[in-house]
């Protein structure tokens, strides 16, 4: 579990003075689906291109499978499948021919083409020219191409970009199956938190080229926290009952709001309130949405660096995962 598939140290890319990627430290353990999250223009694609050797880092080190990318690029890329941004394809060729151009270089048996086409569900359209494909089909062809060489590491940049809901669902299910069925580690980037939340097991949030959070998804969710809202007949009087039970509530529009209490406490509270002749209308759990958390983390990183640091240091550390906090 502790073996790192991808590790970067102080990875930086400068474009004419601005830092598109700034001292980024990625750590992706084997067997994870790592969600690489950030708003548009945060440096996700630039980072992924550096991981694939498509662009050169201005400084810093990329290690994949524990090997230095600069030195062993070809050996590493043989074990990596990738899909960068919108799909690359040759429109005048059909799906089989498209995959054949890659198969000849990877030197895998011809049967792999049928296998990967089956995996992404394109067997029926295999003989059609790719320029006639829908975006979703092109995207699936791109994933088939990435899977062709039976990679150990799959790097997918915005694989669900521009797809309709059913296409998104298909791709998501496909990605979720990879670590279980084939032991593939997946790095998937997105600017949609909900997307990452539904498939990733760990997450890295990047903004303005800097890593502002890196931990397991459950720790991210825990950090978002939940509140218990109790709506009842006389909230102000109920506050006293609550205090007698040793709990502290916030009063908001005739509702009592509790933070960080466990099931036992809730049960005791409710029975105490009932004994005190309060009419309880509703007891509900409200999650602070991850979207809110994400927005707080990513909005105006320059103006509120300290706030981000505060968020970052609040959560418990995840096993085997390093957490990065903006300085």
């Amino acid at each position: 579990m502790n073996e790192m598939m991808i590790e970067t140290r102080n990875l930086t890319k400068k474009y004419k003075g601005t830092r598109a990627v700034d001292a980024l430290n990625l750590a992706i353990p084997r067997g994870e689906i790592y969600g690489f999250l950030g708003p548009n223009g945060a440096g996700k694609t630039t980072t992924i291109r550096m991981l694939l050797g498509l662009i050169r880092p201005s400084s810093g080190v990329v290690q994949i499978f524990g090997q230095d990318l600069k030195r062993d690029r070809i050996k590493i890329l043989r074990r990596v499948g990738s899909l960068v941004e919108y799909p690359s394809y040759y429109g005048h060729l059909n799906a089989v021919e498209n995959l054949e151009t890659i198969r000849r270089i990877l030197n895998v048996p011809k049967t792999r083409i049928d296998e990967v086409l089956h995996t992404v569900g394109l067997t029926k359209d295999a003989k059609r020219h790719v320029k006639g494909y829908s975006l979703g089909m092109k995207q699936r062809l791109g994933i088939a191409a990435a899977l062709l060489g039976s990679p150990e590491l799959l790097i997918l940049d915005e694989p669900t970009n521009g797809l309709d809901p059913s296409g998104i669902l298909e791709i998501r299910e496909l990605i979720k199956k990879m670590p279980q069925e084939q032991g593939i580690t997946v790095l998937v980037s997105s600017h949609l938190l909900s997307e990452i939340e539904q498939m990733a097991s760990s997450v890295g949030i990047v903004n303005q080229g800097k890593m502002i959070f890196q931990d397991s998804i459950s720790n991210l969710q825990r950090k978002a926290g939940s509140e218990i809202h109790i709506a009842l007949s006389d909230a102000e009087a109920a506050m006293i009952t609550v205090r007698e039970q040793g709990c502290f509530a916030r009063l908001d529009q005739g509702k009592l709001i509790f933070k960080g209490i466990d099931d036992g406490q809730i049960a005791r509270l409710v029975s105490a309130l009932v004994d005190a002749r309060h009419s309880i209308y509703r007891v509900e759990e409200r999650r602070k949405s991850l979207e809110d958390l994400f927005l707080t983390m990513t909005s105006g990183a320059s103006g509120s660096a300290s706030e981000i640091a505060a968020i970052g240091s609040g959560a418990p550390r995840g096993a085997g995962l390093r957490k990065e906090v903006a300085q």
Partner: peptide, 18 residues
Amino acid sequence: NIENRQNAWKQTLALPVR
């Protein structure tokens, strides 16, 4: 043009080739 049109360079050059 074959590689430029659909920006296939990123796919071609991310393969294990010099």
